[in-house]
Design a protein around this nucleic acid. Structure first.
Lengths: 150, 150
DNA sequence: ATAATTCTGACCATGACAGTCGGGATTCTC
DNA sequence: GAGAATCCCGACTGTCATGGTCAGAATTAT
């Protein structure tokens, strides 16, 4: 019951892309720098995000990545799904589940529980967008200077 | 973002114990039989559940395991927690988290998100008790014969 | 040309998961 | 007391996901 740090990294990268949205592509070298994450690893994640359609890339000298749509139209669920695959506590409540695969199907009492759980998780993750994360961060940053001056 | 089958097995075993509650201990051999789960593996899980205080054991010929409290006082969260440890999407929202461990603490915008997520998951899992799972199962069983007669 | 980028595939170390196995300790039943 | 049914425990194992690293190719601005 945890989010992989892979997905977490991906999300952090996406918030950086969100901040840079509209100002040309942002390189992962830059992301690695400000987020203190391993560059080679980010490369992989960025590729996944691109294949998932969340970002588009520009190669060459002033290249980098940019969101394919505004930050308020990309939810955390979108990001997590692209990186970790569908979030589903057990196989039998996944979207692509084929009826009959689970032998216990008929007599399974906990399926309802898992479905409620999945819905609950999906709800939280889909309600939060990258735009909100960025806004929260700005808020935090604006308070930070006072505290950081020790 | 998934529940291990280990925890799932544990839960299934617990519902069997719940059904047998009040009628003496239930052996894991019996559980393995009706749930079609590997006995040797269940032994390990049962030990964990005992160490976690959810069941108590009786050795010897008519031995087995029994819940330490009524099924309506044991939540799914209790079971999952004993087997998988605290359910927490990321380290920094875990119960025993030591402030300062995460370098980004101050400027982390997603922490609020993870806390909401954890709360949401905990809520779903703690609201469902073993008693309810058993009740659901009885309901299913009472409908099943008609359908099973094909 | 060269430097900055993305892109790709291969590689690797570690640990969790999902078991299996062997034998010991306890307790009921005969 | 012998045996059988149990729980108990530690060690072992194979497979897979995670969290990376690395080398080099392709692309593009300067």
């Amino acid at each position: 019951m945890r989010v992989s740090s892979k997905a977490h990294y991906g999300l952090r990268m996406m918030t950086e892309f969100a901040k840079a949205y509209g100002a040309g592509p942002l390189s992962i070298a830059e992301v690695a720098r400000v987020e203190h994450l391993p560059l080679a690893y980010l490369e992989q994640l960025a590729s996944q995000l691109r294949r998932g359609g969340l970002v588009e890339s520009t190669r060459g000298v002033h290249g980098g990545y940019a969101l394919t749509r505004p930050a308020d139209q990309i939810s955390v669920l979108d990001v997590v799904t692209v990186i970790e695959g569908e979030v589903s506590p057990v196989e039998c409540v996944a979207h692509g589940y084929v009826t009959g695969t689970c032998l216990r199907e008929g007599e399974c009492a906990s399926r309802g529980l898992w479905m409620r759980l999945k819905q609950s998780i999906d709800a939280v993750l889909s309600q939060t967008t990258l735009a909100e994360l960025v806004a929260d961060q700005s808020l935090i940053d604006s308070m930070a200077p006072a505290e950081a001056s020790r």
